[in-house]
Simulated assay, not measured.
Amino acid sequence: MRFWVGAYAPDTGAAEGIGILQAGEADAPGASGPLGMVATAVSAPGSPSWIAAHPTHDVIYAALEFDGTVQAYRRTGDTRLAPLGAPVAAGEAVCHVAVAPDASHLLASCWGDGRVVRIDLDAAGRPSKPLVAPEALDPYGSSPSEGAVSTGARVSGAVVPDLAAAARALREAAGDEYGHLVPAYDEVPETDAESEEAAAGARVSRAHQAIFLPGGLVATTDMGFDLVRIWRVGGAGLRPVQDVTLPKGSGPRHGLWHPSGHLYVVTELSCEVFVLAPDREGRWHVISGEPLLGTLETDTAAELCTDRHSATLYAGVRGSDTVAVLSVRGSGESLQLTALAETGTHWPRHHVVFDDTLLVAGQLAHEIVSLPLDPRTGIPGRVRHRTASPSPTRLLPMR
Protein backbone atom coordinates (compact mmCIF):
# COMPACT_ATOMS: atom_id res chain seq x y z
CA MET A 1 0.00 0.00 0.00
CA ARG A 2 1.26 3.45 -0.88
CA PHE A 3 0.47 6.84 0.65
CA TRP A 4 1.07 10.42 -0.43
CA VAL A 5 2.88 12.27 2.37
CA GLY A 6 2.29 15.95 3.05
CA ALA A 7 5.07 17.71 4.94
CA TYR A 8 6.69 20.96 5.95
CA ALA A 9 9.35 22.34 3.60
CA PRO A 10 12.79 23.56 4.76
CA ASP A 11 11.58 26.96 6.01
CA THR A 12 10.00 25.20 9.02
CA GLY A 13 10.71 21.55 8.33
CA ALA A 14 12.92 19.44 6.13
CA ALA A 15 10.87 18.06 3.23
CA GLU A 16 11.34 18.97 -0.42
CA GLY A 17 7.67 18.51 -1.23
CA ILE A 18 5.04 15.75 -1.41
CA GLY A 19 6.54 12.34 -0.67
CA ILE A 20 5.48 8.75 -1.26
CA LEU A 21 5.38 6.12 1.49
CA GLN A 22 5.42 2.38 0.82
CA ALA A 23 3.70 0.56 3.70
CA GLY A 24 4.10 -3.21 3.50
CA GLU A 25 5.28 -5.25 0.57
CA ALA A 26 4.42 -3.92 -2.88
CA ASP A 27 2.14 -6.86 -3.69
CA ALA A 28 0.58 -7.12 -0.21
CA PRO A 29 -2.97 -5.81 0.35
CA GLY A 30 -2.32 -4.43 3.85
CA ALA A 31 0.06 -1.91 5.40
CA SER A 32 1.49 -3.99 8.24
CA GLY A 33 4.86 -4.75 6.64
CA PRO A 34 8.08 -2.73 6.51
CA LEU A 35 7.90 1.00 5.80
CA GLY A 36 9.99 2.98 3.35
CA MET A 37 9.93 6.33 1.56
CA VAL A 38 9.90 5.77 -2.19
CA ALA A 39 10.40 9.20 -3.69
CA THR A 40 9.54 12.88 -3.65
CA ALA A 41 6.67 13.10 -6.13
CA VAL A 42 6.93 16.84 -6.67
CA SER A 43 8.85 19.75 -5.20
CA ALA A 44 6.65 22.10 -3.18
CA PRO A 45 8.71 24.65 -1.23
CA GLY A 46 5.56 26.39 0.02
CA SER A 47 5.03 23.53 2.52
CA PRO A 48 2.24 21.12 1.44
CA SER A 49 1.14 20.51 5.02
CA TRP A 50 -2.25 19.07 3.97
CA ILE A 51 -3.19 17.19 0.82
CA ALA A 52 -6.53 15.86 -0.44
CA ALA A 53 -7.60 13.78 -3.43
CA HIS A 54 -10.05 14.43 -6.26
CA PRO A 55 -12.86 11.85 -5.97
CA THR A 56 -12.49 10.49 -9.51
CA HIS A 57 -9.40 11.94 -11.24
CA ASP A 58 -5.73 11.27 -10.54
CA VAL A 59 -5.40 14.75 -9.06
CA ILE A 60 -4.44 15.83 -5.56
CA TYR A 61 -4.64 19.26 -3.94
CA ALA A 62 -2.12 20.75 -1.55
CA ALA A 63 -2.55 23.50 0.99
CA LEU A 64 0.76 25.31 0.56
CA GLU A 65 0.64 26.68 4.06
CA PHE A 66 3.44 29.21 3.94
CA ASP A 67 2.54 30.48 0.47
CA GLY A 68 -1.12 30.95 1.41
CA THR A 69 -2.19 29.15 -1.77
CA VAL A 70 -3.84 25.94 -2.98
CA GLN A 71 -2.10 24.04 -5.77
CA ALA A 72 -3.48 21.14 -7.82
CA TYR A 73 -1.19 18.36 -9.04
CA ARG A 74 -1.96 15.67 -11.60
CA ARG A 75 -0.34 12.28 -11.51
CA THR A 76 2.04 11.76 -14.43
CA GLY A 77 3.56 8.42 -13.41
CA ASP A 78 3.85 5.93 -10.58
CA THR A 79 5.95 8.29 -8.51
CA ARG A 80 5.51 11.68 -10.14
CA LEU A 81 3.13 14.62 -9.83
CA ALA A 82 3.04 17.77 -11.97
CA PRO A 83 1.27 21.09 -11.32
CA LEU A 84 -2.22 21.37 -12.78
CA GLY A 85 -2.94 25.02 -13.37
CA ALA A 86 -1.66 27.94 -11.34
CA PRO A 87 -1.72 28.21 -7.55
CA VAL A 88 -4.89 29.84 -6.22
CA ALA A 89 -4.71 32.37 -3.40
CA ALA A 90 -6.63 31.23 -0.31
CA GLY A 91 -5.43 33.05 2.80
CA GLU A 92 -2.80 33.29 5.47
CA ALA A 93 -1.46 29.92 6.64
CA VAL A 94 -3.94 27.81 4.69
CA CYS A 95 -3.78 24.50 6.54
CA HIS A 96 -6.54 22.26 5.14
CA VAL A 97 -8.35 21.47 1.91
CA ALA A 98 -11.45 19.29 1.47
CA VAL A 99 -12.87 18.32 -1.92
CA ALA A 100 -16.64 18.20 -2.45
CA PRO A 101 -18.02 14.71 -3.19
CA ASP A 102 -19.32 15.90 -6.57
CA ALA A 103 -15.91 17.47 -7.37
CA SER A 104 -17.50 20.83 -8.18
CA HIS A 105 -15.34 22.72 -5.69
CA LEU A 106 -13.02 22.47 -2.73
CA LEU A 107 -12.94 24.29 0.58
CA ALA A 108 -9.76 25.73 2.02
CA SER A 109 -9.39 26.55 5.72
CA CYS A 110 -6.87 29.18 6.77
CA TRP A 111 -5.42 29.06 10.24
CA GLY A 112 -3.65 32.41 9.91
CA ASP A 113 -6.58 34.72 9.16
CA GLY A 114 -9.62 32.50 9.86
CA ARG A 115 -10.79 32.42 6.24
CA VAL A 116 -12.95 29.65 4.80
CA VAL A 117 -12.63 29.80 1.02
CA ARG A 118 -14.63 28.04 -1.69
CA ILE A 119 -12.56 27.33 -4.82
CA ASP A 120 -14.27 26.09 -7.99
CA LEU A 121 -12.96 23.04 -9.86
CA ASP A 122 -13.38 22.56 -13.60
CA ALA A 123 -14.00 19.24 -15.38
CA ALA A 124 -10.28 18.40 -15.27
CA GLY A 125 -10.04 19.24 -11.58
CA ARG A 126 -8.24 22.56 -12.12
CA PRO A 127 -8.98 25.09 -9.31
CA SER A 128 -9.97 28.73 -9.80
CA LYS A 129 -12.33 31.50 -8.65
CA PRO A 130 -11.76 31.66 -4.87
CA LEU A 131 -14.73 33.02 -2.91
CA VAL A 132 -14.28 33.92 0.75
CA ALA A 133 -17.13 32.90 3.08
CA PRO A 134 -18.50 35.26 5.76
CA GLU A 135 -16.09 35.64 8.65
CA ALA A 136 -16.67 34.17 12.09
CA LEU A 137 -17.75 36.17 15.15
CA ASP A 138 -16.41 35.34 18.57
CA PRO A 139 -19.29 34.07 20.76
CA TYR A 140 -17.29 34.93 23.87
CA GLY A 141 -16.50 38.51 22.87
CA SER A 142 -13.45 39.91 21.15
CA SER A 143 -11.73 41.95 23.85
CA PRO A 144 -8.82 40.32 25.71
CA SER A 145 -10.54 40.77 29.06
CA GLU A 146 -13.75 39.10 27.90
CA GLY A 147 -12.52 36.58 25.39
CA ALA A 148 -9.13 35.40 26.57
CA VAL A 149 -8.61 31.65 26.44
CA SER A 150 -8.61 30.36 29.96
CA THR A 151 -5.43 28.33 29.45
CA GLY A 152 -3.88 31.32 27.67
CA ALA A 153 -0.98 29.21 26.62
CA ARG A 154 -1.62 26.80 23.79
CA VAL A 155 -2.60 27.77 20.27
CA SER A 156 -2.44 25.46 17.22
CA GLY A 157 0.07 22.91 18.27
CA ALA A 158 2.45 24.91 20.42
CA VAL A 159 3.18 24.38 24.06
CA VAL A 160 3.57 27.25 26.47
CA PRO A 161 6.76 29.25 25.98
CA ASP A 162 7.51 28.88 29.70
CA LEU A 163 7.66 25.10 29.23
CA ALA A 164 10.23 25.52 26.47
CA ALA A 165 12.32 27.74 28.74
CA ALA A 166 12.01 25.22 31.54
CA ALA A 167 13.17 22.42 29.25
CA ARG A 168 16.25 24.40 28.23
CA ALA A 169 17.06 25.26 31.83
CA LEU A 170 16.61 21.68 33.00
CA ARG A 171 18.77 20.34 30.18
CA GLU A 172 21.51 22.81 31.09
CA ALA A 173 21.31 21.83 34.75
CA ALA A 174 21.41 18.11 33.91
CA GLY A 175 24.56 18.48 31.88
CA ASP A 176 25.82 16.45 28.94
CA GLU A 177 25.36 13.12 30.67
CA TYR A 178 21.62 13.41 31.39
CA GLY A 179 20.47 16.41 29.35
CA HIS A 180 19.30 14.23 26.47
CA LEU A 181 16.64 12.72 28.76
CA VAL A 182 14.75 16.03 29.02
CA PRO A 183 11.83 16.18 26.52
CA ALA A 184 12.63 18.54 23.64
CA TYR A 185 9.72 20.90 24.23
CA ASP A 186 11.94 23.80 23.25
CA GLU A 187 12.12 22.36 19.73
CA VAL A 188 8.37 22.58 19.11
CA PRO A 189 7.68 24.65 15.96
CA GLU A 190 7.10 28.30 16.73
CA THR A 191 3.47 29.23 16.17
CA ASP A 192 1.00 31.88 17.21
CA ALA A 193 1.54 30.97 20.87
CA GLU A 194 4.63 33.18 20.67
CA SER A 195 2.87 36.05 18.87
CA GLU A 196 2.01 39.42 20.34
CA GLU A 197 -1.70 38.61 20.04
CA ALA A 198 -1.43 35.46 22.13
CA ALA A 199 0.79 37.18 24.66
CA ALA A 200 -1.90 39.83 25.08
CA GLY A 201 -4.60 37.20 25.54
CA ALA A 202 -6.46 38.18 22.36
CA ARG A 203 -8.71 35.71 20.56
CA VAL A 204 -8.35 35.41 16.80
CA SER A 205 -10.36 33.38 14.29
CA ARG A 206 -8.46 30.22 13.29
CA ALA A 207 -10.29 28.12 10.67
CA HIS A 208 -8.83 24.61 10.64
CA GLN A 209 -10.94 22.08 8.74
CA ALA A 210 -14.00 21.59 6.53
CA ILE A 211 -16.13 18.43 6.68
CA PHE A 212 -18.76 17.64 4.06
CA LEU A 213 -22.04 16.42 5.60
CA PRO A 214 -25.12 14.84 4.03
CA GLY A 215 -27.85 17.03 2.56
CA GLY A 216 -25.61 19.72 1.07
CA LEU A 217 -24.21 20.87 4.42
CA VAL A 218 -20.64 21.55 5.49
CA ALA A 219 -19.15 21.85 8.98
CA THR A 220 -16.01 23.92 9.58
CA THR A 221 -13.98 24.22 12.75
CA ASP A 222 -12.72 27.53 14.12
CA MET A 223 -10.09 26.79 16.72
CA GLY A 224 -9.61 30.40 17.78
CA PHE A 225 -13.28 31.18 18.42
CA ASP A 226 -14.30 27.72 19.75
CA LEU A 227 -16.85 27.26 16.99
CA VAL A 228 -18.19 24.54 14.75
CA ARG A 229 -19.83 26.44 11.90
CA ILE A 230 -22.57 24.80 9.82
CA TRP A 231 -23.01 25.98 6.22
CA ARG A 232 -25.17 25.21 3.22
CA VAL A 233 -23.37 24.87 -0.10
CA GLY A 234 -24.80 26.82 -3.02
CA GLY A 235 -23.81 28.16 -6.39
CA ALA A 236 -22.93 31.50 -4.82
CA GLY A 237 -20.65 29.95 -2.22
CA LEU A 238 -21.28 29.07 1.41
CA ARG A 239 -24.34 30.32 3.25
CA PRO A 240 -24.14 30.33 7.07
CA VAL A 241 -26.75 28.12 8.74
CA GLN A 242 -25.68 27.96 12.38
CA ASP A 243 -22.71 28.37 14.71
CA VAL A 244 -22.33 25.76 17.45
CA THR A 245 -20.33 27.08 20.39
CA LEU A 246 -17.97 24.76 22.24
CA PRO A 247 -16.52 25.46 25.69
CA LYS A 248 -14.33 28.52 25.93
CA GLY A 249 -10.70 27.73 25.22
CA SER A 250 -11.36 24.21 23.95
CA GLY A 251 -10.06 24.86 20.43
CA PRO A 252 -11.97 22.59 18.01
CA ARG A 253 -9.48 21.36 15.43
CA HIS A 254 -10.58 18.36 13.34
CA GLY A 255 -13.68 16.23 13.05
CA LEU A 256 -15.29 13.40 11.16
CA TRP A 257 -18.78 12.44 10.07
CA HIS A 258 -19.97 9.11 11.47
CA PRO A 259 -22.42 6.76 9.71
CA SER A 260 -24.70 7.02 12.77
CA GLY A 261 -25.44 10.64 11.81
CA HIS A 262 -23.18 12.25 14.41
CA LEU A 263 -20.28 14.63 13.97
CA TYR A 264 -17.27 13.98 16.20
CA VAL A 265 -14.88 16.88 16.85
CA VAL A 266 -11.54 16.74 18.68
CA THR A 267 -10.44 19.87 20.51
CA GLU A 268 -6.78 20.77 20.27
CA LEU A 269 -6.44 22.79 23.46
CA SER A 270 -8.66 20.98 25.97
CA CYS A 271 -8.01 17.47 24.57
CA GLU A 272 -11.63 16.30 24.36
CA VAL A 273 -13.88 14.77 21.74
CA PHE A 274 -17.37 16.27 21.40
CA VAL A 275 -20.40 14.68 19.76
CA LEU A 276 -22.68 16.96 17.72
CA ALA A 277 -26.00 16.13 16.09
CA PRO A 278 -29.03 17.93 14.60
CA ASP A 279 -32.46 17.81 16.23
CA ARG A 280 -35.70 17.21 14.33
CA GLU A 281 -35.81 20.85 13.26
CA GLY A 282 -32.28 20.66 11.91
CA ARG A 283 -30.69 22.70 14.71
CA TRP A 284 -27.29 21.38 15.74
CA HIS A 285 -26.30 20.77 19.36
CA VAL A 286 -23.46 19.34 21.41
CA ILE A 287 -25.00 16.21 22.91
CA SER A 288 -22.01 14.72 24.75
CA GLY A 289 -18.27 14.97 25.22
CA GLU A 290 -15.44 12.74 26.37
CA PRO A 291 -12.21 14.08 27.90
CA LEU A 292 -8.98 12.34 26.96
CA LEU A 293 -8.10 11.51 30.54
CA GLY A 294 -4.43 10.94 31.21
CA THR A 295 -3.22 13.68 28.86
CA LEU A 296 -0.94 16.39 30.22
CA GLU A 297 -1.80 20.04 30.75
CA THR A 298 0.68 20.95 28.01
CA ASP A 299 -0.62 18.43 25.47
CA THR A 300 -2.40 19.40 22.24
CA ALA A 301 -4.67 17.06 20.31
CA ALA A 302 -4.22 16.69 16.56
CA GLU A 303 -5.99 14.26 14.23
CA LEU A 304 -9.16 12.19 14.68
CA CYS A 305 -9.87 9.08 12.62
CA THR A 306 -11.92 5.90 12.80
CA ASP A 307 -11.31 2.22 12.18
CA ARG A 308 -12.80 0.47 9.16
CA HIS A 309 -15.88 -0.59 11.15
CA SER A 310 -16.54 2.95 12.47
CA ALA A 311 -16.67 1.45 15.96
CA THR A 312 -13.44 2.92 17.35
CA LEU A 313 -11.95 6.43 17.17
CA TYR A 314 -8.30 7.36 17.45
CA ALA A 315 -7.25 10.84 18.60
CA GLY A 316 -3.59 11.81 18.37
CA VAL A 317 -2.05 13.78 21.25
CA ARG A 318 1.14 15.78 20.82
CA GLY A 319 3.41 16.44 23.77
CA SER A 320 2.94 13.19 25.65
CA ASP A 321 2.99 11.61 22.15
CA THR A 322 0.09 9.26 22.65
CA VAL A 323 -3.08 8.19 20.86
CA ALA A 324 -6.41 8.04 22.66
CA VAL A 325 -8.66 5.11 21.81
CA LEU A 326 -12.41 5.73 22.10
CA SER A 327 -15.25 3.29 21.51
CA VAL A 328 -18.51 4.45 19.95
CA ARG A 329 -21.42 3.75 22.31
CA GLY A 330 -25.17 3.45 21.88
CA SER A 331 -26.31 4.72 18.52
CA GLY A 332 -23.24 6.91 18.18
CA GLU A 333 -24.40 9.55 20.64
CA SER A 334 -21.63 8.92 23.17
CA LEU A 335 -18.00 7.87 23.34
CA GLN A 336 -15.96 6.04 25.96
CA LEU A 337 -12.21 6.37 26.37
CA THR A 338 -10.72 2.87 26.55
CA ALA A 339 -6.98 3.51 26.38
CA LEU A 340 -4.23 6.07 25.99
CA ALA A 341 -1.42 4.33 24.12
CA GLU A 342 2.13 5.38 23.29
CA THR A 343 2.75 6.18 19.63
CA GLY A 344 6.48 5.54 19.84
CA THR A 345 7.29 8.73 17.94
CA HIS A 346 7.53 12.45 18.67
CA TRP A 347 4.75 14.93 17.88
CA PRO A 348 2.12 12.68 16.22
CA ARG A 349 0.72 15.25 13.80
CA HIS A 350 -1.40 12.88 11.72
CA HIS A 351 -2.43 9.22 11.70
CA VAL A 352 -4.55 6.82 9.68
CA VAL A 353 -5.92 3.33 10.24
CA PHE A 354 -5.52 0.84 7.44
CA ASP A 355 -7.01 -2.57 8.23
CA ASP A 356 -5.10 -3.84 11.30
CA THR A 357 -2.42 -1.13 11.31
CA LEU A 358 -2.13 2.40 12.71
CA LEU A 359 0.26 4.61 10.74
CA VAL A 360 1.52 7.71 12.57
CA ALA A 361 3.37 10.72 11.16
CA GLY A 362 5.86 11.84 13.81
CA GLN A 363 6.44 15.42 12.69
CA LEU A 364 9.30 16.33 15.01
CA ALA A 365 10.87 12.87 14.96
CA HIS A 366 11.02 13.12 11.15
CA GLU A 367 9.64 9.64 10.77
CA ILE A 368 6.54 7.54 10.10
CA VAL A 369 5.80 4.54 12.30
CA SER A 370 3.33 1.64 12.19
CA LEU A 371 1.66 0.01 15.16
CA PRO A 372 -0.43 -3.19 15.16
CA LEU A 373 -4.02 -2.92 16.40
CA ASP A 374 -5.42 -5.54 18.73
CA PRO A 375 -8.24 -7.23 16.76
CA ARG A 376 -10.44 -7.44 19.87
CA THR A 377 -9.90 -4.11 21.63
CA GLY A 378 -8.50 -1.93 18.84
CA ILE A 379 -5.71 -0.76 21.15
CA PRO A 380 -2.34 -0.13 19.43
CA GLY A 381 0.68 -2.22 20.39
CA ARG A 382 4.34 -1.26 20.25
CA VAL A 383 5.92 0.18 17.11
CA ARG A 384 6.40 -2.57 14.55
CA HIS A 385 8.13 -0.62 11.77
CA ARG A 386 9.49 2.87 11.23
CA THR A 387 11.08 4.86 8.43
CA ALA A 388 12.72 8.25 8.17
CA SER A 389 10.48 10.89 6.60
CA PRO A 390 11.17 14.64 6.80
CA SER A 391 8.58 16.65 8.78
CA PRO A 392 5.54 14.49 7.88
CA THR A 393 2.16 16.14 8.52
CA ARG A 394 -0.40 14.20 6.44
CA LEU A 395 -0.82 10.60 5.20
CA LEU A 396 -3.18 10.20 2.23
CA PRO A 397 -3.86 6.70 0.81
CA MET A 398 -3.23 6.36 -2.91
CA ARG A 399 -5.97 4.94 -5.09
Rank of each mutant, 00 (worst) to 15 (best):
M1Q: 03
G6F: 05
Y8Q: 03
A9L: 10
A14V: 00
L21C: 08
L21W: 03
G30L: 08
A31G: 03
L35G: 08
V38T: 11
A44D: 10
G46Y: 00
I51R: 02
H54S: 11
D58F: 02
D58L: 01
D58V: 01
V59R: 04
L64V: 02
T69N: 03
T79H: 13
A82M: 07
P83D: 02
G91K: 07
E92Y: 04
H96Q: 15
V97L: 09
A100W: 10
A103N: 09
S109Q: 04
W111Q: 03
V116E: 07
V116R: 01
D120Q: 11
D120P: 02
A124R: 14
E135F: 02
L137R: 15
D138Y: 02
G141Y: 11
G141I: 12
S143R: 13
A148C: 09
G152Q: 11
V155N: 09
A158F: 03
D162Q: 14
A164L: 04
A166N: 07
R171N: 07
E172F: 02
H180G: 13
H180V: 10
V182M: 12
D186Y: 05
E187H: 12
E187Q: 15
E187S: 13
V188W: 09
E190H: 08
E190K: 12
D192I: 00
A198E: 10
F212E: 12
L213D: 07
T221N: 13
T221K: 00
W231N: 04
G234E: 02
D243I: 08
T245E: 14
W257F: 11
C271T: 15
P278C: 11
P278Y: 05
W284T: 09
H285G: 06
E290F: 07
A301C: 14
D307R: 03
R308A: 14
R318K: 14
R318G: 03
S320G: 15
L326M: 08
V328M: 08
R329P: 00
L335K: 01
L337K: 11
H346E: 14
P348K: 06
H351G: 09
D355I: 00
D355W: 01
T357S: 13
T357F: 09
Q363C: 03
V369P: 06
G378M: 05
H385Q: 15
H385V: 06
P390S: 10
P392K: 10
T393R: 00
R394F: 12
P397N: 11
M398E: 14
M398S: 06
